[in-house]
Design a protein around this nucleic acid. Structure first.
Lengths: 240, 240
DNA sequence: ACCTATTTGTGCGTATGTATC
DNA sequence: AGATACATACGCACAAATAGG
């Protein structure tokens, strides 16, 4: 790849502006003629570049209307090191979080089993909405052993970051040891949080994060809006 | 773990019968009283075992009705070696395929891009329905460079196996180099093939299989029924 | 609409072995 | 040794939901 033809460099230029949110998701791009003038090339060259971006599902065109930026799918790589904020920032977008609650609850059977806890043990529940550039993309819920990390709740409240809060509790690093993926349709409550319609598809992941010795630390449950997110395994993310 | 208490051995016994399909997916288990009599224990002991299996999402109970085998979610591991038949057989179930068609078509832009083909190049399209124990679980579509593998079409017709057909074309081994995962809802055609309702959730994977030198060989597009399948990354599949 | 048998869910009591303080 | 706590296992009774007539 990476032959420096006119149209490839133009395509890369436009792609950069899309991922930098200069051309925002869903908005109309400048016209082909305008691009042609701006880059000092023929309109056909611009068309070739845009066609390539359309192949990659970055833009779509409508005859007589213009070329529009496709709803960008953020790619989450399935690796041992899964960090929401880093992943998003690396793609030039701005991550944020709405925290819906930090609470102390009795562990669910699933949480207890995964974290190796007894019946009725207490867990810190951290749940909220993950956003990219202000748009909600995922509902997350994390469970931590409250006995093992007594102060984690207050730390989570203050720092609003799992990685930071765990560090304050003596966990310098952790890794993703398991991710189970399936699909569901959004119920009204989920749809409301994610600003989608009930019945829209969601990616559901159940994950386990463990310390470096392999002991489970966190049980996560996340619902991604499928129209804005895709999970990627072993990829260079070339189509993003 | 693994203390041989009564209830754990009973739980293992029942779990074994579930995975051996003696208790089929979706069917009702014998009543707690019947289990108690059969194992010669108190009903509470059976209940403890069943509660454990319910924790693992293997069974679910309905008061007044009985305990039912959960629709078993087949786990597909996301690794470098993804083989449908092997994965299923390894879990003690019986894989099969309905072939909907083997055809020669002009490559879609996406297929051409991934396989590194020129405009209008021909590809072999292999598509059909994957089944487990006779129940449809996925719609698949594979695209191969027809210039590179001229005889692949006939081989696919005959052997009905991608791995076998590729071997006949001189590709001894291949590996999964990329999997993109998202979720969609089934349209009426997909729903009909998969015997589900339109609007039910599907897992959609776009995959690339490459030869051992990393050259893309196959572009795959698969729709899994989310209620019967989950994808697993880096897991021991203990809950299945 | 009703009854009834079945089945799960829940509560309480008893006993035993094992580990811990 | 004694006291305490906990998990296991059994027995009985009743409530609540379901399925079938």
């Amino acid at each position: 790849m990476a032959e420096p033809t006119l149209w490839t460099t133009i395509a890369q230029e436009i792609e950069k502006d899309i991922s930098a949110q200069i051309f925002r998701s869903g908005t109309k791009l400048p016209s082909e003629s305008e691009f042609a003038h701006r880059f000092g090339v023929n309109r056909h060259t611009v068309r070739k570049a845009l066609a390539h971006l359309a192949d990659k599902d970055l833009v779509w065109s409508k005859r007589g209307a213009g070329v529009f930026v496709t709803g960008v799918k953020s790619s989450y790589r399935l690796t041992q090191r899964v960090r929401f904020s880093e992943t998003i920032r690396a793609s030039g977008r701005h991550p944020s979080r709405d925290i819906l609650g930090v609470s102390l609850q009795a562990a669910s059977p699933d949480q207890a089993r995964v974290l190796g806890l007894g019946d009725g043990a207490l867990v810190h529940i951290f749940h909220g909405v993950s956003k990219i550039d202000g748009h909600p993309v995922a509902l997350f819920q994390s469970a931590f052993d409250a006995t093992k990390f007594p102060d984690l709740g207050t730390h989570l409240q203050e720092m609003r970051s799992v990685t930071q809060a765990l560090k304050a509790c003596g966990v310098d690093d952790y890794k993703r040891t398991s991710t189970e993926i399936t699909a569901v349709v959004a119920d009204p409550v989920q749809a409301n949080h994610l600003r989608i319609k009930p019945g829209d598809p969601l990616l559901r992941t159940k994950s386990i994060n463990s310390d470096l010795e392999g002991r489970p630390i966190e049980r996560g449950l996340t619902f991604f809006t499928a129209d804005k997110v895709q999970l990627v395994h072993n990829d260079d993310m070339s189509s993003n």
